[in-house]
């Protein structure tokens, strides 16, 4: 899956007039392992629907073979962390969990301190709005970050999909 190119729609599209189109990630710095620990929450049906369209076949989070690999690949395309020197950081897959229709993705991003200046972009599920609703839902991804004594909350929208971490007191 080098490129996100797809040939067909196979499954029918459900429009949820009340779909969320948003994700929440809780990010915490692990000073021992030198990595960001990320728990990302997303509506399981929405992500399934987006992945199914990308792959041109039904992707079932509970049934599809190698679905973890698919999720990992998708994250690598949509959740990008770069050093201040714009060097991309890898994403280490930890696992997933489904609870009350919500999918939690867990992964680590090894990074070096200082975190100041780290570039994060998060466009997970940004396809969903165009796929599903008549452009009525603006996707917003929110991210709450804990780094030592700092708490930081960022959000990502189509127009502002990239953020630079800054812990300096305003």
């Amino acid at each position: 899956m080098k490129k996100l190119v797809v040939i067909l729609f196979l499954c029918s599209t459900f429009l949820f007039a009340h779909r969320y189109h948003f994700t929440i990630s809780e990010v915490e710095w692990n000073s021992q392992n030198k990595c960001l620990e990320v728990g990302l929450r997303v509506d399981s049906f929405e992500l399934e629907s987006v992945l199914s369209k990308i792959y041109g076949k039904k992707i079932d989070l509970e049934k599809t073979k190698d679905v973890d690999k698919i999720l990992h690949l998708y994250l690598q395309k949509r959740f990008l962390v770069k050093t201040p020197q714009r060097k991309p950081c890898s994403i280490v897959w930890i696992g997933k969990e489904i609870s009350r229709g919500q999918l939690w993705l867990y992964f680590e991003v090894p990074v070096k301190e200082p975190l100041e200046g780290l570039i994060i972009s998060n466009s997970v599920l940004f396809e969903a709005a165009t796929f599903e609703a008549n452009s009525s839902h603006t996707p917003v991804n929110i991210m709450n970050i804990r780094y030592k004594q700092h708490k930081l909350s960022l959000y990502f929208t189509k127009d502002k999909a990239q953020r630079i971490l800054s812990f300096a007191k305003k």
Binding site: V5, G56, F126, E127, T130, N134, S135, P139, D159, A161
Partner: peptide
């Protein structure tokens, strides 16, 4: 207006065919 006011961006150059 719904079509005209829809904003783009965020997908960073890679757009799934279906989209």
């Amino acid at each position: 207006d719904a079509v005209l006011t829809e904003t783009s961006g965020g997908l960073q150059g890679e757009i799934p065919f279906a989209l």
